[in-house]
C-alpha cells in the first residue's frame, strides 16, 4: 500500500492529464500539412525515442495521436507534423505561434535503431508516413558510421505533396541515398513516377544485409512488405508503424486493438513478423 501511495504522489497528475507546450513556430509543408515546433511551458524536455507519439490537442477540440517528427537529440524542442483531416487536426494546424497546446506522452514503441546497427537500413515511407521516420533518419545520420547503406524510398501522391524537400537534400549530402516517386505528376516533374514499391527493385539491395522500416497507409505497407519479401528480406527484419484508433495512449481504452496487440501500448512500431498474421485478417 505504501509503495503505491508514493507512486501516486509522483504521478499525481495522472497519465490522462496533459502538459502545456507553447507553439514557437509552424511551417507549412503542403496544402494541408504543417510542422509545429513546441517547447515545454514548464521546463522538462520531452525525451523520446524516434517512432514514439504524443496525444496532442488544442484547448478542448479533441486529442489526436501524432508521431514525433523531431530530432531525438534535441528533446527541448517538440516537433510534430500534422495533416489536417478532421476537427482536432485542423484545430492544431490553425494554432498560431504563442499559443499553448496540450500534450501527453511520449507513448509507444520506437524504431529499432540499435538492432539496425551494421545493417543496410532501408526506410520506405509513404505520404504522411515520413514524419514518424524523420527522427530515426536524423539519429542514424548523426551516427552514420554505425550503419551500412542508409536508403530512403519515399512515395507520395504528387510532387506538391512531398514533405521535407530541402531537408531531404541535406540528408543526401550526409550520406542518405534517396529515391522519391509520386503516383502521378505533370511534365515538370523529372523524378520517378509510379508506386513506391518499384523503388525497392531500383535501390539495388542486398537482401541479406537489409533491415527495413516502413510507415505509411496500411495498404502501402502491405505492398511494401510483399515486395521486400519478394527480394528476399525476412519478415522479422521489417518493422512497420501501424495506425489504429488510439485514444488513451496507455492501453486502457480498448480502441486500438489489432488482435492480440494494443497498438498504442505494444506499438505503433512492430516487427512485421509479430503482426503479419493479424494485418492480413480483414476488419480485425
Amino acid at each position: 500500500m505504501l509503495a503505491s501511495a508514493s507512486d501516486t504522489a509522483t504521478a499525481s497528475a495522472g497519465p490522462l492529464v496533459p502538459a502545456p507546450f507553447r507553439l514557437l513556430a509552424k511551417r507549412r509543408e503542403t496544402a494541408d500539412t504543417w510542422t509545429l515546433e513546441l517547447e515545454p511551458r514548464h521546463g522538462t524536455p520531452l525525451e523520446f525515442a524516434p517512432g514514439q507519439f504524443t496525444m496532442i490537442s488544442r484547448g478542448g477540440c479533441g486529442e489526436v495521436p501524432i508521431s514525433i517528427s523531431g530530432d531525438p537529440d534535441e528533446p527541448e524542442r517538440l516537433v510534430q507534423t500534422v495533416r489536417a483531416v478532421g476537427l482536432a487536426t485542423s484545430a492544431l494546424c490553425e494554432a498560431e505561434p504563442g499559443e499553448v497546446l496540450s500534450v501527453r506522452g511520449p507513448f509507444g514503441t520506437a524504431w529499432p535503431l540499435e538492432e539496425a546497427e551494421g545493417a543496410d537500413v532501408v526506410i520506405v515511407a509513404g505520404g504522411i508516413g515520413l514524419p514518424p521516420l524523420r527522427g530515426a533518419v536524423l539519429r542514424m545520420l548523426a551516427q552514420r558510421e554505425r550503419y551500412g547503406r542508409l536508403v530512403l524510398l519515399y512515395g507520395g501522391r504528387a510532387p506538391d505533396q512531398l514533405l521535407f524537400g530541402e531537408q531531404i537534400q541535406q540528408w543526401r549530402e550526409q550520406g542518405l541515398e534517396v529515391l522519391i516517386t509520386v503516383d502521378s505528376a505533370g511534365p515538370e516533374w523529372i523524378g520517378h513516377v509510379g508506386v513506391v514499391t518499384r523503388l525497392i527493385g531500383r535501390a539495388g539491395l542486398d537482401a541479406s544485409r537489409v533491415l527495413a522500416m516502413t510507415c505509411g497507409p496500411e495498404v502501402m505497407m502491405r505492398f511494401v512488405v510483399a515486395t521486400l519479401a519478394d527480394t528476399g528480406v525476412q519478415s522479422d527484419r521489417i518493422h512497420v508503424s501501424i495506425e489504429r484508433n488510439m485514444q488513451c495512449g496507455i492501453g486502457v481504452c480498448g480502441h486500438c486493438q489489432l488482435g492480440p496487440v494494443l497498438v498504442c501500448r505494444d506499438g505503433p512500431v512492430f516487427r512485421y513478423s509479430e503482426v503479419e498474421r493479424w494485418m492480413r485478417v480483414r476488419e480485425l
Binding site: R83, G216, M220
Partner: peptide, 18 residues
C-alpha cells in the same frame, strides 16, 4: 499490380501523422 496500388490513391485520405 502497380496500377491497382496506384488506383487506391492510398495517400489521399489515410493517416494524419502517426
Amino acid at each position: 499490380e502497380a496500377t491497382q496500388f496506384q488506383l487506391l490513391d492510398v495517400y489521399g485520405n489515410a493517416r494524419v501523422g502517426v
